[in-house]
Design a protein around this nucleic acid. Structure first.
Lengths: 187, 187, 187, 187
DNA sequence: AATGAATGAGTGTTCATTCAT
DNA sequence: AATGAATGAACACTCATTCAT
């Protein structure tokens, strides 16, 4: 099952999977995904040996994409609040711009599709923004498993994106409320 | 008269569904659920006319159970902090004692399986604890859709339960961290 | 499986079966039939040992009922045309008054649910109206299996009832057209 | 390119459906049909998206086949009697040669499986043989719904085929008797 | 390398029939 | 005698995966 060369097709499948999973849940069929990608049913399996493998790769792909977005322009040497603010609003902005990706990621993060190992691996993509350390040393989370803060942060972000997307007129209010909560957690 | 329909079996199905959904997601099969409940496949459908109906009833059942747990001993006339504290620790305690129920509820609350109407109905089971109002009028959430605060609260609670259950030695620490965040949101 | 005494309930089941089969085809469920008869699912099987037996008894019941209707007032010693006319218009009248029975009988007569032996037995219920002989000796059907004439007659009658019921304004025209064809067959 | 979808298999399914429906009625299972066609259950649904669609296509297929048979050698400019005679004997001959098709068509024509629209569409396959007009304007049927004449004709033909097939020694006699009735209806 | 036809286990659901009550 | 809960085989249909082309 040597991976064929067309990176473009692999990407098309990942994007199609993201949008199908967002629309129909993880039970969206491989046939539907292949069709959305403009490929035939069998071809999908030349790029991903199984649906499970596709799901895993999709998880990594989405996290990488998100991570690249967050890194772009990140003010590494700014104050903590400035960095946190940048992180938060970038995160939400990505979610609002990529609703399918956001929904799919929330499905994948909540379900049992992704092994803890893979989640750990994905977490490592995130550049050192000097925030995690603050998080872990904050009054609230000090001494606890780093994943806990992540988990709370993500859940907060998913909810914020969901409500901002559903009620665009108040999007800014949701974003700021979310940030307020986030910032309180760091204090 | 024929054998009466047994409430016990309906409960067995609901419990089996909760544990199967927790383990396999909502796509766990009705056959698997029936087997876990110790019944034949057909019997499940005498108690619940469809999988969808089972899911809806399970949602109400779990919310009711949770609600009863929270109401038990609730200090109606205590200070806000005392009430919030009771609510939080009861919530987490229930989740830790009923991990399958907690996971299943998180699946149901995040997915599209339950209609907003049913969610609303379930929300009405909860006794008036004088907390919602504070929540909604708090500095953070004032003016926003009430569902947003709920959603954030629940996400926080689910994460807390998850980590407390996974790492029982530090359970207390997670619970207190979670409460701290919760309380900050109310201020 | 001794037949219980309540003849009334057996009749209720037969009538319910007739109306359910008319509405839903022979695949109407025994549960539905029992419900229409005002009985519980299991009770049906105390009166008829199986669905197949019910179908067979229903066939005989409907044919008997029809036959009694045709016999009522039959002018045994009138001319052939008068007898034929009476037979025809009675037949159609019964069908129009008992649409469910008519539809159910047409289902049973056309399918393979009823054995030829039973059909033969049912045919013998019909009183000697001195018409069959004419039929068999008519120019058209002389020398052929008596069932052939029956079959054609019934098909003609079913069609006539169907169209008369569907288009009541022209019911009389259909009846007379049907009779004309019938009469031509006897000449 | 992958294996092309084989017209042969679609035909095998249609033929299998025809024979299963003839034997067991329209409730014959898709599994049985697939097995008779020498295919797996799933394959049937690649050729026909649902049982209902299969039934509809089968109806059209059988009507088309019958129509092609009737058209072959039809003496378009002969006298009415000659045309009627050709039509009748061809019809019966086709039915006798294709007993399953004849039985299946009779089930489909009498039941509620085929929409009036589809029946209308199938009727249009039949070439203009200049007989319908005579039929509809005949003394007997003039002024009545065209479907009535059709219905009577078909019922007559189905009965004739049934008896001719069951009693081959007298097949000719049944055919001629049937034609006599048909012809009387046209006069 | 790409295709899509073929597969068969699996899905939610129905139903004739049995049997404990 | 009557009930209706319980059953499990059967149903129409889906789908991840394989493989001939």
């Amino acid at each position: 099952m040597a991976r064929p060369r067309s990176e473009e097709k692999a990407l098309a499948i990942l994007e199609a999977a993201s949008s199908c999973f967002a629309e129909r849940g993880i039970s969206a069929s491989t046939a539907m995904i292949a069709k959305h990608a403009g490929l035939s049913e069998g071809t999908l399996f030349r790029y991903f040996p199984s649906k499970e493998a596709l799901i895993n790769e999709l998880y990594l792909y989405l996290k990488k994409t998100l991570c690249a977005y967050l890194s772009d322009g990140f003010p590494l040497s700014a104050t903590l609040e400035q960095r946190a603010r940048f992180l938060w609003f970038s995160y939400i902005s990505w979610g609002v711009k990529n609703p399918a990706a956001n929904i799919t990621l929330s499905h994948l993060d909540v379900g049992d599709f992704i092994t803890p190992e893979l989640k750990q691996k994905a977490a490592e993509f995130f550049p050192d923004m000097g925030i995690h350390e603050e998080f872990v040393q904050s009054t609230v989370f000090s001494g606890l498993n780093r994943g806990f803060a992540d988990s709370v942060f993500q859940a907060l972000a998913y909810s914020t994106v969901k409500f901002a997307a559903k009620d665009p007129n108040n999007a800014e209010a949701y974003k700021h409320a979310g940030f307020t909560v986030f910032w309180k957690m760091l204090e």
